[in-house]
Amino acid sequence: MRKRRAFGKWIFLVLMLVVLYLPILILAVYSFTDATQIGQIRGFSLQNYVTLFTTESLRNMIGGTLLLAFGSAAIATVLGTTGAIGAFYSKGRVGRAISTMNQVPVVNADVVTGFSICILLVVAFHISKDTYIPLVIGHVTLCAPFVFLSVMPKIRQMDPSLYEAALDLGATPAKALRQVVIPQLVPGIVSGFGLAVTLSLDDYFIATYTKPATFDTISTYVVNATKGAQTTIKTALWALSTVIFAVVILVVAGMNYHTARADRAREKAEKEGRAE
């Protein structure tokens, strides 16, 4: 009886995985054929991949999305990290005010964030969308709060006397910050940056309301392409989905390998520590 139930649990988990992955996998299989619709049975073909990497509009859109993601994530990381350090040490009202403002884009719907930035910059202040300024500001506003949130816990965990010690030993505050404080925050900064990149890559709404008409991110491009009827583009996007899926698998596997190794190293160090 007990065993049967345990078995049922695993069946449920496997079923959930199948549901989650089946659409992506079906698309991946069909991306290697010249079928124009799934369900058709056709021969093997790499045409979709050729189209994906040779069509100019597709290449520009992929490059633009990546540039936007890494660029705005970099800005967001600098702002969010310095903001978190500043907010933590300005105790009281100022610190609380920064944390509260930081929370707004986090809980807000992306539609509202994107629309309000468009209203401010484009409608009220007449900044042309073609300058890319509204788009970059929109994406930095989307990402920076999450960098702030992932750096903050690391600042809380930090030993406050280290900074004092650095000052006592003659470091200037700027140097103490650079050489003592920041290095301890690196894990939080790195995960904040990664988070910022993924948020920007996945965004549709902020981009729609702030981007130049001639520029597309993956999301805006795909949404427009599904409205059109161009089948070569449609099936080339299946190839794109497959490429992204492969990249995600590689990154996640790499991350897991990394943490597993770090865990093992820590266990080993602990054992040796006990032995002494």
Binding site: T82, M101, T113, I117, T141, V181
Partner: peptide, 29 residues
């Protein structure tokens, strides 16, 4: 004098300009 607090100024200004102000303008419109 440079202190750790002053590191927060750019982000605080950013948040006022691009998080608070858009909502004010939204209200106005």
């Amino acid at each position: 004098k440079f202190t750790r607090k002053s590191l927060g100024i750019p982000y605080a200004v950013y948040l006022v300009l691009f998080v608070v102000l858009p909502l004010v303008v939204l209200f106005y419109y």
